[in-house]
Simulated assay, not measured.
Amino acid sequence: MDQKDILKHIFNSWNKPKVFVGTDHIIKYLNTPAKHHYAKWGDIMGKSIFHCHNEKSTLIIKEALIQLENGQEEVLLVNDEKHRVYMRGVKDENGVLVGYFERYDPPLGK
């Protein structure tokens, strides 16, 4: 099994959606839970993340990317009774931001 297959299996073992998006906001990877979560929008691989987000969410994502580009590791996007959602930056071996993904945590106090 090569590294790509191992990483695919690791990401698919998580029960939460994992979507990797480039700094151009184009979706580059979805794990199996993400494919199910976003199924109502059809095949979104290779499309803009904004295809499946409303105007308010689009603005939040764009502002969060600016914070990631300025060195922040992750940005809290949602903090409600259902969950906390963070946007986490992904950097290459030279420390250059190449994209981001959302990380889900349970709500505080749970």
Rank of each mutant, 00 (worst) to 15 (best):
Q3K: 11
K4P: 02
D5F: 05
I6K: 12
I6R: 09
L7C: 13
H9L: 13
H9V: 05
H9I: 06
I10K: 08
I10E: 08
F11E: 00
N12T: 06
N12W: 03
N12S: 05
W14K: 05
N15V: 03
N15L: 03
K16E: 13
P17L: 10
K18Y: 09
K18R: 08
V19H: 01
F20T: 00
F20M: 07
F20D: 00
V21W: 00
G22E: 02
G22A: 10
D24E: 08
H25N: 08
I26L: 08
I26D: 01
I27K: 01
K28S: 09
K28D: 02
Y29F: 15
N31L: 09
T32F: 00
T32S: 05
A34W: 01
K35V: 08
Y38A: 12
Y38H: 12
G42T: 08
I44G: 02
M45T: 14
M45N: 10
M45L: 15
K47H: 11
S48A: 00
F50I: 04
F50D: 03
H51M: 10
C52N: 10
H53R: 10
H53C: 11
N54K: 08
E55S: 12
K56C: 11
S57D: 13
T58R: 09
I60L: 15
I61R: 05
K62D: 06
K62R: 15
E63T: 09
L65H: 03
I66Y: 10
L68G: 05
L68K: 07
G71W: 11
Q72K: 14
E74H: 06
E74W: 04
L76P: 02
L77K: 10
V78N: 05
V78F: 05
V78W: 00
N79V: 12
D80H: 02
E81V: 10
R84C: 08
R84I: 08
V85N: 05
G89M: 07
N94L: 03
V96L: 02
V96E: 12
V96Q: 12
L97C: 12
V98W: 02
G99W: 01
G99A: 09
Y100K: 07
F101H: 04
F101T: 04
F101Y: 07
Y104V: 15
D105F: 10
D105C: 10
P106Q: 07
P106W: 00
P107R: 01
L108V: 14
L108Q: 11
K110A: 05
